Measured scan of single mutants.
Amino acid sequence: DEETLERIAKELKEKGWTLIVNGKLITDAREALKWLLEEEERR
């Protein structure tokens, strides 16, 4: 759910983690959240 996604995005940002999505590096939590939401919609 959205709360979980926001928590994940926040944790990613705090830890300075990066996500690699389709070979693209995502360092911004907002971008990561946007991607996660798009993935949820596809299901």
Rank of each mutant, 00 (worst) to 15 (best):
D1W: 15
D1Y: 14
D1F: 14
D1G: 10
E2C: 15
E2P: 11
E2M: 14
E2F: 12
E2K: 12
E2Q: 10
E3L: 14
E3A: 13
E3D: 12
E3R: 11
T4C: 15
T4A: 10
T4K: 06
T4W: 15
T4I: 14
L5T: 02
L5A: 03
E6M: 14
R7T: 04
R7F: 07
R7P: 01
R7A: 08
R7M: 08
R7K: 06
I8W: 11
I8R: 10
I8E: 01
A9S: 06
A9Q: 08
A9H: 06
K10W: 08
K10T: 07
K10L: 11
K10I: 07
K10A: 09
K10S: 09
E11I: 15
E11A: 14
E11D: 06
E11R: 12
E11L: 15
E11W: 15
L12R: 01
L12P: 00
L12E: 01
K13S: 11
E14D: 11
E14Y: 04
E14W: 12
E14F: 07
K15L: 09
K15H: 09
K15T: 04
G16T: 09
G16D: 02
G16E: 03
G16W: 12
G16H: 07
W17V: 02
T18M: 11
T18N: 04
T18E: 04
T18D: 03
T18Y: 10
T18A: 10
L19A: 02
L19Y: 06
L19G: 02
L19D: 00
L19K: 01
L19E: 00
L19I: 09
I20H: 02
I20V: 07
V21I: 13
V21M: 06
V21W: 12
V21N: 02
N22V: 14
N22G: 08
G23I: 13
G23K: 02
G23R: 06
G23S: 03
G23Q: 02
L25R: 03
L25P: 05
L25D: 02
L25E: 08
L25Y: 08
L25N: 03
L25H: 05
I26S: 03
I26M: 05
I26D: 01
I26W: 13
I26T: 02
I26G: 01
T27H: 09
T27Q: 08
D28W: 15
A29I: 14
A29Q: 03
R30K: 09
R30N: 06
R30L: 13
E31S: 08
E31N: 10
E31P: 00
A32G: 01
A32V: 12
A32M: 12
A32I: 14
A32Y: 13
A32H: 02
L33R: 01
L33H: 00
L33N: 00
K34C: 14
K34P: 00
K34L: 10
K34A: 08
K34R: 12
K34E: 06
W35Y: 07
L36H: 01
L36F: 07
L36Q: 00
L37Q: 04
L37H: 03
L37K: 06
L37A: 04
L37E: 01
E38W: 12
E38I: 08
E38L: 10
E38T: 04
E39M: 14
E40L: 15
E40I: 14
E40R: 09
E40F: 15
E41Y: 11
E41F: 12
E41Q: 13
E41M: 13
R42S: 05
R42V: 04
R42K: 06
R42I: 06
R42P: 03
R42A: 06
R43S: 09
R43Q: 09
R43V: 06
R43M: 09
R43H: 07
